[in-house]
């Protein structure tokens, strides 16, 4: 079985450092904000939110060509959040990118809020398709990429899937077709935190050899440390190179990343920190921030 090398960041220029620092700061802000939203709402999916926060920060605050004032522009890059339960990460990214006012984050999961437990494009600008049931994002993203292919358009389409989600058959129907069509402007990121709702993916219905599966479906495969902002940006920059195959980036991540007592704990898939835990989480995130600011 072929394995995938895990890209980690190396030496960088000053401009590159500025890009990375901005994404790092935004990801840290997303983490602090989404934990507060979950505490306030009394429910949420902190494990997956924290697992995917660095990926979303890299996309929304650097990579995606999007204009919050023109959320329906035909030539916009698309980001499809296939793991639709991770709205803490998605909504903080969308608010941070300017699709709606940051203050609206305080309405998360409240009666009548536009910030549903799963995203809704009919209410909320910036959402591309309504997800929640798993295995829906990739087929829709493939359709978007086919539309672009027919038109010879330049926009890129990104999809974030969970890893447990890859147990859904519809993912592989879409993966097969994307390989067949040679959708070179399509990039999937797998949030490979190795935990699904109740257990490890490999104990439930094993995904490995995962890279081989994608290769066999006609995809180019890359690996990245999904919490290394410089490596994520480099992987997304490389994804812009002309390709005649779709690309999957398998991001090695940790559920609950950034909060020590949540990290790699399946129990924090759902869950709400109590006051003491929330304070501890903020301290950890603040300490991290302070360390970066030196």
């Amino acid at each position: 079985m072929e394995t995938v090398g895990l890209a980690r960041s190396g030496g960088r220029s000053g401009a590159e450092n500025a890009r990375v620092e901005r994404v790092r700061e935004r990801a840290n802000w997303m983490r602090r904000r989404l934990l507060g939203m979950i505490v306030d709402a009394g429910q949420g999916h902190p494990g997956g939110d924290l697992s995917s926060a660095d990926i979303l920060a890299s996309l929304y605050f650097d990579i995606l060509r999007i204009d919050p004032k023109a959320p329906s522009a035909l030539d916009r890059d698309r980001f499809v959040m296939s793991k639709g339960h991770c709205t803490g990460a998605l909504y903080t990214a969308l608010a941070g990118a300017g699709f709606f006012a940051e203050a609206e984050l305080d309405t998360y999961l409240k009666p009548g809020s536009r910030l549903n437990g799963h995203p809704n494009r009919a209410y909320l600008p910036g959402v591309e398709t309504n997800t929640g049931p798993l295995g829906h994002g990739l087929p829709v993203a493939v359709g978007i990429a086919v539309a672009g292919q027919i038109d010879g358009a330049d926009f890129r389409t990104f999809v974030l899937t969970g890893d447990g989600e890859l147990q859904e058959g519809s993912v592989w129907e879409a993966a097969m077709f994307a390989g067949h069509r040679g959708l070179g402007k399509l990039t999937v990121i797998v949030d490979r935190n190795r935990l699904q709702q109740g257990a490890k993916t490999e104990d439930t219905n094993s995904l490995e050899p995962l890279a081989d599966k994608w290769r066999a479906f006609g995809w180019q495969v890359a690996g990245v440390d999904g919490h290394d902002h410089a490596a994520l940006l480099a992987a997304f920059d490389a994804a812009a190179e002309p390709r005649d195959k779709p690309l999957v980036i398998i991001a090695d991540t940790h559920k609950g990343q950034g909060v020590s007592f949540m990290r790699d704990q399946a129990g924090w898939h759902h869950g709400v920190p109590n006051a003491e835990q929330y304070a501890e989480a903020l301290r950890e995130l603040g300490a991290e921030l302070e360390a970066e600011m030196k």
Binding site: T129, P139, A141, I144, G148, I150, E173
Partner: peptide
């Protein structure tokens, strides 16, 4: 692949088709 067919349809609509 009917699930993919309908999802692709929704994506094509997103792409302006």
């Amino acid at each position: 692949a009917e699930q993919n067919m309908v999802g692709v349809g929704a994506g094509l609509a997103n792409g302006g088709k």
